[in-house]
Design a protein around this nucleic acid. Sequence first.
DNA 1: CACTGATTTGTTATATCATAACGTTTCCAG
DNA 2: CTGGAAACGTTATGATATAACAAATCAGTG
Lengths: 174, 174
Amino acid sequence: MHWSKPMKSEEMSDSHGGFPRPGHDHSRCVKSALAVAEEKSRAQGLRFTAMRRRVLEILWQRHGAMGAYDILDVLAEEDDRPAPMAVYRALDFLIDAGLVHKLNSLNAFIGCATPSEDHDAQFLICERCGTAAEIEGTPITKAVDQAAKSEGFDVRQRVVEISGVCPHCQPASN
Amino acid sequence: MHWSKPMKSEEMSDSHGGFPRPGHDHSRCVKSALAVAEEKSRAQGLRFTAMRRRVLEILWQRHGAMGAYDILDVLAEEDDRPAPMAVYRALDFLIDAGLVHKLNSLNAFIGCATPSEDHDAQFLICERCGTAAEIEGTPITKAVDQAAKSEGFDVRQRVVEISGVCPHCQPASN
DNA sequence: CACTGATTTGTTATATCATAACGTTTCCAG
DNA sequence: CTGGAAACGTTATGATATAACAAATCAGTG
C-alpha cells in the first residue's frame, strides 16, 4: 500500500471507507460529512441543529469511535459542559438519520462513512488505534440471511463488529 | 454426574442449537451444560467453583440472555445478595473457558450451546422472547474474513449479533 | 499434617454508560 | 402572531462494569 503522491479523483478514498491514513487531513472528511448531513436533513425535512452538527463534526474530527462522554469532554473545552442528555439526544438523532452508527462492542459511536445508502453497519475495528472501517456488506449479509432463513428467523437488524488490527497498525506494513 | 451414553438427536434439538421450543424441559439443558462444564474444567485444570457453577446454572435455567444484575437478583433470592463483582468474576471465568458468551448489543450473557468447539459466537436474538440461538458460522466467517482480507485487516474476534423475531414468536408459526 | 504460594472470594468504593421526568425555549405552519 | 410540536436545559437516577485490597480457600509439597 503506497500513499506517496497527492490524490486526485481518489481523494474520496482518503475520506470515505477503509482505514484512513494515519495523519491524513481530516478537515476534508469533516466538511464532506457535514455537507452530506446538511443536504440529507434538508431533503428529509429534519432539523440539523447546532448541537447535532457539532456532535457529528466532533466524531469526524476524530475519524474514529468515541464514547458519548468523550464527545462531552470535547464540548466542555469550548463551552460550559453540557449534560450527558444533550449528547445522547444528538446521537439518537444522528443514528436515526443514518449519519452515525453505534459500535455495541465498544459502547462507542462513529460517523457513518456512507450515509447516502441504506446499508448495514458492518465494521472492522482496530484494537490499537481505535479507528473503525465500514466494510462492504453484501456477501456477509447474504451469509447471515441464509443462516437466519434456515432457522426460520425474521431478520431486523444486523450487528457485525470485527475486532483486530488494521493495516496501519501492523508491524510489517507500518 | 456424567453422560456415558450420547444423547439422541431429538434430545439434542431440544437442548442445543436453534431456538428451544417454548416451554421445553430446561432441566435437561441445565444438567447437560453443567456436565460439560465440569468435564471441560477438569480436563483443563480449571476450578469450576460453586459460584461459577451456580451462575452457569442460572443462565441455563433461563435458557436465554440475562444481564449480570438479573443473575444477581436470582442469587439474592436464595442467599444474601452478593456484590456485582462476584457475578462479573464468575462470568469472566465462564467466558474465558468458552462456556458463556457476551451479547454486546444487549449487555447480556448467555450459556454457550457448543462449548466443546472453538467457535465464533454468532447469534440470532429474538426481540420478543429474548432467547438467542447460536448459528452455524462457517459461511459467515468466510464472508467476514474475505472482507477483512481485502482491507488488509488482521481479524482477532468476530461479533455477529442479528436481531429479529424467532420462529416461535412469529404470528404464522406460533 | 502444616507450610506456602497462588487462586478465589468478600468488601468497599467508584468508574462508566445511559435514560426518566419535567419545565423552558425555539421553530415554523397556519 | 400564535398554538402546537420539536428541541433543549436541568436535575436526578438507573444500569452496567471495574479497581483495589483484605480474607479465605485450595493444591502441591516437605
